[in-house]
């Protein structure tokens, strides 16, 4: 085949341009660390990367939900713990009040103490967290108990999404902890105790000792329930962290360039370009009849 000058020059130019294109792609890959310049670099991997990034976003959103709700639930648990202590103190006072040697005046003094403790108990039951009132259920923007201890909140618990297809109750139920819905109306029982003390009714005070015990068990159960939920959140959070790490590493495997490989490829192509240019120079300098 005749080789025309245009063929010789054209081939040299095309070859160098081709190596330069490859070199550009390799430099981009080495400098960005990403194997994918765009979806066309590897369409299957690109689609997979989109799904992985979506899954990472989903996992992160669940972690964020847990971070948001956890604080209030921890606070609920601590508050129920305090409520248990207050109720313990009331129970002690009831035990004292059940003593037959006490006078009406002694019982009146005890009653005054119980009333103060009830106020403390109300303060705890109306405790506000970062989201809203801890024990108000879904009516969390209003205090759940009025001054008398009547429940105004919602028996409906707050529920959050904490995973794909998973939701959980993220509030401690004030209704179950403090009202008859949990078996005993704590504030009514305290009121019954103060009434018994005020009326110097030893038998009624003795009966209140038992009911205080039931209320205590009710609050402890609510606290245990909050603890269980916190534990579940911990487990979920760990699982999300693990999933996030796994997904990230999948994402890296799909989208990242192997640094050693990209560097060696870059070096090889740089050497290739140099060779190409010197070969081109040789070709263009190749003995031409003009030089003879």
């Amino acid at each position: 085949m005749r080789i025309a000058d245009s063929t010789r020059l054209g081939t040299v130019m095309r070859d160098i341009a081709s190596v330069q294109r490859q070199l550009f792609a390799a430099s981009r890959q080495a400098s960005t660390g990403s194997r994918l310049a765009g979806p066309s670099s590897d369409p299957v991997a690109a689609a997979q990367l989109v799904r992985i990034q979506g899954a990472i976003g989903e996992t992160e959103s669940y972690s964020a939900v847990l971070r948001t709700v956890r604080g209030d639930l921890e606070m609920s648990e601590a508050t129920l713990d305090d409520a248990g202590s207050v109720l313990g103190q009331i129970q002690d006072l009831a035990l004292q009040g059940a003593n037959g040697a006490l006078t009406a005046s002694d019982r009146a003094t005890l009653s005054a103490q119980v009333k103060q403790l009830k106020a403390e108990m109300l303060r705890l039951a109306n405790q506000k967290g970062s989201i809203g009132y801890l024990f108000a259920g879904t009516s969390d923007q209003d205090a759940p108990f009025d001054a008398a201890g009547t429940f105004l909140g919602s028996p409906q618990d707050r529920v959050a999404k904490i995973g794909p297809g998973q939701s959980m109750v993220v509030s401690a139920s004030g209704a179950l902890a403090f009202t008859a819905l949990g078996g005993n109306d704590v504030f009514a029982e305290i009121d019954a105790l103060t009434a018994a003390l005020d009326s110097n009714n030893q038998a009624a005070v003795s009966a209140s000792v038992k009911s205080m015990d039931a209320c205590q068990r009710q609050i402890v159960a609510a606290r245990a329930d909050a603890g269980t939920k916190l534990a579940r959140m911990d487990t979920a959070d760990v699982a999300f962290e693990q999933a996030k790490v796994a997904l990230s590493s999948q994402g890296h495997a799909v989208g990242d360039a192997d640094p050693a490989e990209s560097y060696s490829r870059l070096t090889a192509l740089q050497a290739g370009l140099q060779t190409s240019i010197s070969v081109a120079k040789t070709l263009l300098d190749t003995l031409s009849i003009q030089q003879i």
Binding site: Q53, G54, G57, T68, V69, I131, A160, S167
Partner: peptide, 20 residues
């Protein structure tokens, strides 16, 4: 893709604090 994912996930955040 990110904005689609963010939008869908924002409803999860809403479940955590719907009155905020």
């Amino acid at each position: 893709g990110t904005s689609l994912s963010d939008m869908l996930q924002s409803f999860s955040a809403l479940t955590a604090n719907p009155s905020d």
